Amino acid sequence: MEIVRDVIHEDLDTEFPKLTIEVVGRRRAVLVRFGDPVTQGQDDFTADVMTALPHPSGRGLYIPNTKIADQWDRADPITHTQMVLKAITDTKVVFARTVRLLKHWNCTHSKPMCSWNIKALCLGCLDEPMPLINALQIFFTYAADEIDNGPTPDPAHVADPIPLNMTRREVHKRLCTARDYIDLAIEHETAGRPLSAQHALHQVLPELVPDADATQEEAARLASTVRTGGTAATGLGLTVGLVTPTRAWGN
């Protein structure tokens, strides 16, 4: 990683005089900060640069892992990339958009999983175009079952199973909670309760989907349920928070 840092400095220092490169504390890749934004309004442009060595077997590579004693992990990032690109094509970009939403879910719920675990699980269940809400439903249902059965295997069958950031029981619980809220959102939307649907989806993606006041819709639902002789209980209760309703979770 230090050799990579020196080579990048040699190649780019003249073009980018504010270039800085971080190695210390980095687990797998060196972090390159160009000190020069490429998009208006951004402070900087950064890149992660991975170094690797061919594995003696001819399958996969050794990639850095500074958090373990051996300092290297065996992986097959080339095959991983090919699999992800195929999934993006097969789903007409739904795969990539779903992964992006799931990364938001992961970050706002204490990061129970690493991003590669999310992608690996998506590879096992998303293989055709569909609305994003359905892709989320399929993922959380599939991921909860898979994590309940054990660690996620490497899709390329080269590296060890993918570790979790929390106990398997806790990750499974969070996946099930997200699955239940997605199911509830779809149920509400199908029944013509868009504010209730939005409120349920807000629990999963609070930074992306504004909360909505579903008080009137919920009152009408409960009244209708009681009139037809059903129960007024719900599996996931609704709280209220007044914002301007925004439908932000369709295709």
Results as ranks from 00 to 15, higher is better:
Met1Trp: 01
Met1Leu: 09
Ile3Ala: 00
Asp6Trp: 00
Val7Phe: 13
His9Ile: 04
Glu10Leu: 14
Leu12Ala: 01
Leu12Cys: 11
Lys18Cys: 11
Ile21His: 03
Arg28Met: 12
Ala29Asn: 02
Val30Thr: 02
Val32Ile: 07
Val32Tyr: 10
Val32Ala: 04
Gly35Ala: 01
Pro37Trp: 05
Thr39Val: 15
Gly41Thr: 02
Asp48Met: 12
Met50Pro: 00
Thr51Glu: 06
Thr51Ser: 13
Ala52Gln: 14
Ala52Met: 15
Leu53Met: 14
Pro54Val: 02
Ser57Gln: 15
Arg59Asn: 15
Arg59Ser: 14
Leu61Arg: 01
Tyr62Cys: 09
Ile63Cys: 02
Thr66Met: 14
Lys67Tyr: 00
Ala69Arg: 02
Gln71Thr: 12
Gln71Pro: 05
Gln71Met: 08
Trp72Lys: 10
Ala75Lys: 13
Ala75Leu: 10
Asp76Phe: 06
Thr79Gln: 14
His80Lys: 11
His80Tyr: 10
Leu85Met: 12
Ile88Val: 14
Thr89Cys: 03
Thr89Ala: 02
Asp90Met: 01
Asp90Ile: 01
Lys92Ser: 14
Val93Thr: 15
Thr98Glu: 10
Val99Ile: 01
Lys103Ser: 06
Trp105Ile: 01
Trp105Pro: 11
Asn106Glu: 13
Cys107Asn: 13
Cys107Met: 03
Thr108His: 13
His109Val: 09
Lys111Thr: 05
Met113Ile: 01
Ile118Asn: 11
Lys119Asn: 15
Cys122Ala: 05
Gly124Leu: 04
Cys125Tyr: 15
Asp127Tyr: 12
Asp127Val: 00
Glu128Cys: 06
Pro131Ile: 13
Gln137Thr: 08
Phe139Thr: 09
Thr141Trp: 03
Thr141Asn: 00
Thr141Tyr: 11
Ile147Thr: 15
Asp154Glu: 04
Pro155Gln: 00
Ala156Met: 09
Pro161Asp: 10
Pro163Lys: 05
Leu164Gln: 12
Asn165Ser: 04
Asn165Phe: 07
Asn165Asp: 09
Asn165Gln: 07
Val171Cys: 15
Lys173Met: 09
Lys173His: 03
Arg174Ala: 12
Leu175Ser: 13
Arg179His: 00
Tyr181Thr: 02
Asp183Met: 03
Ala185Val: 03
His188Ile: 01
Glu189Gln: 05
Thr190Leu: 04
Thr190Lys: 11
Arg193Thr: 00
Ser196Thr: 14
Gln198Lys: 01
His202Glu: 00
Gln203Ala: 02
Gln203Gly: 05
Val204Lys: 07
Leu205Ser: 00
Glu207Val: 07
Val209Asn: 10
Val209Thr: 06
Glu218Asp: 14
Ala219Trp: 12
Ala219Pro: 03
Ala220Asn: 15
Ala220Ser: 14
Val226Ser: 07
Val226Ala: 08
Val226His: 06
Thr228Cys: 09
Gly230Phe: 02
Thr231Leu: 06
Thr231Met: 08
Leu242His: 14
Leu242Gly: 02
Leu242Ser: 02
Thr244Trp: 07
Pro245Val: 12
Trp249Met: 09
Asn251Ile: 12
Asn251Trp: 10
Asn251His: 02
